[in-house]
Design a protein around this nucleic acid. Structure first.
Lengths: 78, 78
DNA sequence: TACCATTTGTCCGTATGTATG
DNA sequence: CCATACATACGGACAAATGGT
């Protein structure tokens, strides 16, 4: 999965889309955590803030629940 | 040893420089641990993340080896 | 065995400064 | 001006490893 750093779509939106697709595909089941911020930073070669923004998009969509000190856990598939 | 919180040099870099000087001067001999994160926080009045970053600089330079549950031990003098 | 203190590891929350488009 | 993005810095909480009681 690649990120387009030139195009008009913000990186964090692209990362959020990738994660959303994985959740909706069942690759990350409900109750399971999405990749940590550090993992996302590595995988997509992005800054932490960008990783956090991506996860917050999913949180605002109700797809994941963020737990301080633990991670962001899938709550459903939308 | 004082830290300049206004200047352009990041605090963690300054702390790393202080520790590096102590190591190269032999104040902290090979095999001995550098001060713990908690100690560095107290001594320099910095946040834990800043202390960790400073030690990681030395680790990346090969000056110390970090062991979880133990500390960061001087491996040499560069 | 259990418990505890110390230390590093890993999270999230927040804020500021800088730079770019 | 504003959104995006990165680096720095502080704070709080929980997890894991270590060593001792």
């Amino acid at each position: 999965v690649t990120i387009d750093r030139e195009g008009p779509v913000p990186i964090y939106q692209q990362v959020a889309s990738v994660l959303r697709a994985r959740i909706e595909a069942g690759d990350i089941a409900p109750g399971r955590p999405v990749p940590s911020e550090a993992s996302l930073m590595q995988e997509f070669e992005i800054a932490r803030e960008t990783a956090r923004k991506a996860v917050r998009v999913l949180r605002d969509e109700g797809l994941v629940q963020i737990v301080q000190g633990r991670g962001a856990y899938v709550t459903g598939r939308g």
